[in-house]
Design a protein around this nucleic acid. Sequence first.
DNA 1: AGCTCACCCTGGACGC
DNA 2: TGCGTCCAGGGTGAGC
Length: 269
Amino acid sequence: MPELPEVETIKVSLQPIIGARVKEIELRRNDILRRQEYKLEEIEGKRIKAVERRGKYLSLVFGNHRNLVVHLGMSGRFYLENENAQEDKPHVHVLIFLDNGQRLAFQDARRFGGLWLLKDTGKFFAERLGKEPLADDFTASYLQKGLQGRKIPIKAFLLNQQPVCGLGNIYVDEALFAAGIRPERPADSLTSKEAASLHRAIRKVLRNSIENRGTTFRDYRDGFNQKGNFQNHLKVYGKAGSPCPKCGQLLQKTIIAGRSSHYCKNCQY
DNA sequence: AGCTCACCCTGGACGC
DNA sequence: TGCGTCCAGGGTGAGC
């Protein structure tokens, strides 16, 4: 489940391909292209000018209004390998051959992910994504204002990418645990102190995960097809029935907003 | 407008 | 061993 830290890790590991030129693109499944504002062949011969991240989206920027936007869904991988690497992996839907002897592979077993060929990413992101949680303009005050009047569980609020983007099931559970807030609490029931605590917890959890190259629960791999390490630092996600790392009581699991939610009934109120 | 929920998909875990 | 069933979830859109 690639969330912000995983996509950020991929972005960083792909910086070395900036300046490389696309030789050829092999598209094996048409339905992996979610939107085509230009033809795929138009980026053949073009240089990669930047590799960027916005929320859980990754963008290859070619300039002249040509962007290749990637979302990894929950089982997607996007990684570099030698252009002559043995081709024995299942579910590789797109191969992008570069002029540096490498190729980029988009592999996605469950196909919740996809590619967008966009002339302008600004509008695309603006209508889907809210503030970047690690940016300066994501403040405690901004979060607190967003919570006002919202009756949905705080978990559902944080999973929505519109107020703040990049969080998914793992980091929402971890941040709520760090802040001592139960996931089912109505968003507008948080005090300003709790909102500030949650704001700090979100940024801390994301930064810690990025330092550990993200969480590999099952499918996630970075831009070099390597696992992350943050799964070894998770406090509650996937640990129902295990003792709480703070108090020792057994961690709970319940369904909120249609997602499995892990928490400590003793440490979270 | 705000909110809930079904749906898409496949591999792995689990039960018998 | 093998088969069937269930579960995981990001984003979208239908429906209340």
